Simulated scan of single mutants.
Amino acid sequence: MFPIRDDNPQVNTPYVTYGIIAANALAWFLLQGFGFGEQLNASVCHYGLIPADLFGDGLTDVAPRGVCPSDGMGWGGVFSSMFMHGSWMHILGNMWFLWVFGDNVEDSMGPVRFLLFYLLCGFCAAAAQVAADPSSAIPMVGASGAIGGVMGAYIMLFPRVKVHMFVILIIIFTTFRVPAIAMLGYWIVVQLLGAFSSMGSTGGGVAFWAHVGGFVGGALLVWVFKDEELLLNHPYRGWQRPKKAANIWDDPANRE
């Protein structure tokens, strides 16, 4: 299943969401060489978050280096890793989820608050992944954790909004709508299952704990960053019935 779009109207232009997508695209093109050749591997090692680099002072047993022969950016990797990706599917999938869910969350906070919220969710994701394995020498990259925070905020703000899902059933291609709480709830359950099943693993793979940390961080931080006045412009906020919400949205007086 893959989300195509939601039925949540966009009130204001989501400039920060667009800017974050542009920043990730520029990093992919300029720093990661479109995902080709040695530039991709070098960028992942240099700009990725390597937990072992954060505790290289003897406080923990640092794992032998096999993936990256040299140190990364240390604590700077907590920030830079949020704009790095490992493949075309990785960046396209992340940016699509941000495109679908980011605009409405930005609408609920305003651009400045949303930017700070997004970065804090990324830090929560990094903290969760590092806490899960602080001696790991495997670099973590991707905007998934921060976007997980956006999804956590979305499920808190707009649980009843219908999300259009694209599904492939063997040779049948179809779409259907489900409430956001069902789609995003399913997503976080999958991440939790993946996180617990990956405990003790020493190889690379999906940073499930980062996804969980970002999602939980976003679900909690949204109560601090949301703007009630901005939310009044959103007919689908909270648990309002879609029929009533549609009537509110159809009233031009509520679009100002």
Results as ranks from 00 to 15, higher is better:
97 F>K: 00
72 G>T: 04
102 G>K: 00
87 S>D: 08
78 V>N: 06
81 S>Y: 01
104 N>M: 11
104 N>L: 07
99 W>F: 15
72 G>A: 05
98 L>N: 04
81 S>Q: 12
91 I>P: 02
107 D>K: 05
102 G>I: 00
93 G>C: 03
74 G>W: 14
92 L>N: 01
93 G>I: 11
91 I>D: 03
114 F>P: 01
123 F>M: 15
120 L>D: 12
107 D>C: 07
95 M>V: 13
114 F>Q: 01
107 D>A: 10
85 H>Y: 10
78 V>D: 02
98 L>T: 03
106 E>F: 04
116 L>W: 07
90 H>F: 13
106 E>N: 03
112 V>P: 02
101 F>T: 04
79 F>M: 14
82 M>S: 05
74 G>A: 10
94 N>Y: 07
100 V>L: 02
111 P>Q: 00
116 L>E: 05
76 G>R: 10
72 G>M: 04
92 L>P: 01
122 G>L: 10
103 D>P: 12
92 L>F: 10
92 L>Q: 11
73 M>F: 15
107 D>R: 01
87 S>P: 01
93 G>Y: 04
113 R>D: 05
80 S>P: 03
120 L>V: 13
77 G>N: 08
95 M>P: 08
113 R>H: 09
91 I>R: 06
102 G>E: 05
111 P>S: 00
88 W>V: 12
101 F>C: 02
115 L>Q: 03
76 G>Q: 12
93 G>K: 00
119 L>A: 15
116 L>K: 12
123 F>T: 14
93 G>F: 13
77 G>L: 00
108 S>F: 05
77 G>I: 02
78 V>F: 08
103 D>A: 14
123 F>R: 09
71 D>I: 07
122 G>Y: 02
99 W>H: 13
115 L>C: 08
106 E>S: 06
118 Y>Q: 08
111 P>R: 08
117 F>Q: 11
79 F>I: 07
80 S>E: 02
103 D>R: 09
115 L>T: 02
95 M>I: 14
112 V>N: 10
89 M>N: 14
113 R>P: 07
113 R>Y: 07
109 M>Y: 09
98 L>Y: 03
115 L>M: 14
84 M>C: 09
81 S>D: 04
80 S>A: 02
72 G>Y: 06
72 G>W: 07
117 F>W: 13
112 V>Q: 12
119 L>T: 13
78 V>L: 15
122 G>F: 09
87 S>W: 14
109 M>T: 10
83 F>A: 11
105 V>W: 04
114 F>H: 06
108 S>I: 01
82 M>T: 02
85 H>E: 09
84 M>Y: 11
76 G>E: 12
73 M>C: 12
91 I>C: 06
89 M>C: 09
79 F>G: 01
82 M>K: 05
110 G>D: 13
87 S>N: 11
96 W>P: 01
94 N>V: 00
85 H>Q: 08
85 H>C: 03
108 S>W: 05
95 M>L: 15
115 L>V: 02
114 F>T: 02
73 M>Q: 14
72 G>Q: 01
108 S>K: 05
80 S>C: 06
78 V>S: 09
86 G>D: 05
85 H>N: 10
118 Y>T: 07
88 W>H: 00
97 F>W: 04
100 V>H: 01
115 L>P: 06
118 Y>M: 12
108 S>G: 10
102 G>Q: 02
119 L>Y: 11
97 F>Y: 07
90 H>C: 13
73 M>A: 13
79 F>W: 12
95 M>C: 14
89 M>E: 14
